[in-house]
């Protein structure tokens, strides 16, 4: 699946069965991000498909 990382503005190709597994593969702490698929937010146990386009947004904002 295609994964866009908002913080680094980078797109990665990788597969995972769930959001939790995806974040683990990317070494991202789940408390620091929200994850969306086609504009809909996903919880960590949500199952993912190979053709999904995922966006990972950081929750921390400064200033």
């Amino acid at each position: 699946m295609e994964v866009f990382l908002e913080e680094t503005q980078e797109t990665r190709q990788l597969d995972a069965d769930t959001v939790q597994e995806l974040l683990k593969k990317l070494n991202i702490n789940p408390t620091t991000v929200i994850v969306s698929r086609n504009g809909s937010l996903l919880i960590e146990s949500q199952k993912l498909e190979k053709e999904d386009k995922i966006e990972i947004l950081p929750v921390v904002s400064g200033g």
Partner: peptide, 9 residues
């Protein structure tokens, strides 16, 4: 922070 980010999104 995550709850606020979720609501904000």
């Amino acid at each position: 922070e995550k709850e606020i980010a979720t609501y904000a999104y």
